[in-house]
Design a protein around this nucleic acid. Structure first.
Lengths: 198, 198
DNA sequence: GTACCTCCATACGCCACCGTATGGTGGCTG
DNA sequence: CAGCCACCATACGGTGGCGTATGGAGGTAC
């Protein structure tokens, strides 16, 4: 029941987690390193090892935070439109354009960092869990549109595949994607092609 | 003009390059480390620093080798069928199933390792070069089928996006893709959906 | 105002990897 | 067979990150 505030601004575990996610987005799992993070936060390891047991504890916490925040965002995105017919399009359009907003920490970066380190002991479980959930959700959206379970699953896989590749391209070789209005046009074509129910 | 063979089996630069590509495929750019590679080759750093100036020289050589070998493979794949109509399908079907053959060093792994380290000084140029070439090639295949340059470019982007995402999924969360005959069925649907000229 | 408790700084030993220096071995060349 | 040269082993110093230990500084409680 004590709530002291040392001096002024004392760091919290959440500050470290936020910094870890930033490093994750920019430099991958390897960049989640204690001493560099401490420097970027203007403090020292002494602070870190008070809040966390070790580096893995931070990584685990960051992954956990990301998983929650991420699914929350998706859910929120879908809730903006309850019309079953356009929900799917809205979701895809939003995720495909989420590359643009902000800059670094943004959306896909953490995504790709985890994907690149899929074999990591801590990354692997959360990544497959998130992927599974997203695929299941996408599948449900397609079945909502009258597709058989098998076909819905296939379309969901295709859509998610396109999402991954799109994010990848946008991140690794952004110069090769169309820009400005052409980009939105391209995304529209993507979405239409992915949601077309034949 | 000297071609001596020390003792028996003495290592060549190519041996190191091959090992580097293997490490790249399995552990990414960070895994291309001199001492671990030496151990895996049953030798020591002494050997390495005779063949290469430093670690970057090995990385550059490996990237170069990969770029050549990779484009060679694509060209060879296309040459198997000269029928313009089915060339596109053949190429896609081949690249989408290339995940299965062999196991580790195989195809997509190096691909993804580079993609994950796209910001690396040495990786960045070769990666964008390869991506550009592939996109240009894909675009040409689509124009061959009567599409306008703009539409062909868009379809090429979509196809390459799907390729990237598919490779990614297969590598990071292989359990979520269909297996066996269902996998080939899925690939077929992918290819048909990507090559459909409306 | 003293005792405690939170939060952090500093210093230490450890390990992995880089790159250099230097010496050694075995085959080839005269 | 003497010497040279391609190829490699070993040893060294340097750097960067991990985790621990220990010692404050400052707020809080009584």
């Amino acid at each position: 029941m004590v709530m002291p505030r040392g001096k002024r601004e004392s760091l919290t575990a959440d500050d470290w987690i936020r910094a870890a996610l930033g490093a994750l987005a920019q430099g991958g799992v390897a960049a989640v390193a204690v001493e560099p993070l401490a420097k970027s936060l203007g403090t020292t390891k002494g602070s870190f090892y008070w809040h966390f047991a070790d580096r893995n504890a931070l990584l685990a916490a960051a992954l956990d935070h990301w998983e929650k925040r991420d699914t929350d965002r998706v859910i929120a995105a879908v809730d903006t439109t309850q019309d079953a017919a356009t929900r799917l399009r809205a979701l895809l359009r939003l995720t495909f354009t989420s590359i643009l907003e902000g800059s670094r920490d943004t959306a896909g970066a953490v995504e790709l960092a985890l994907q690149a380190n899929a074999s990591h002991d801590l990354v692997s479980p959360t990544l497959t869990r998130v992927t599974k959930r997203r695929l299941a959700f996408l599948t449900s959206l397609f079945t909502e549109q009258g597709l058989s379970p098998a076909r819905a699953r296939d379309r969901a896989l295709l859509a998610y595949t396109a999402f991954l590749g799109h994010t990848q391209l946008a991140h690794a070789t952004p110069g090769l994607l169309p820009k400005g209005r052409a980009f939105h046009h391209h995304v529209n074509e993507l979405v239409e092609s992915l949601t077309a129910v034949d």
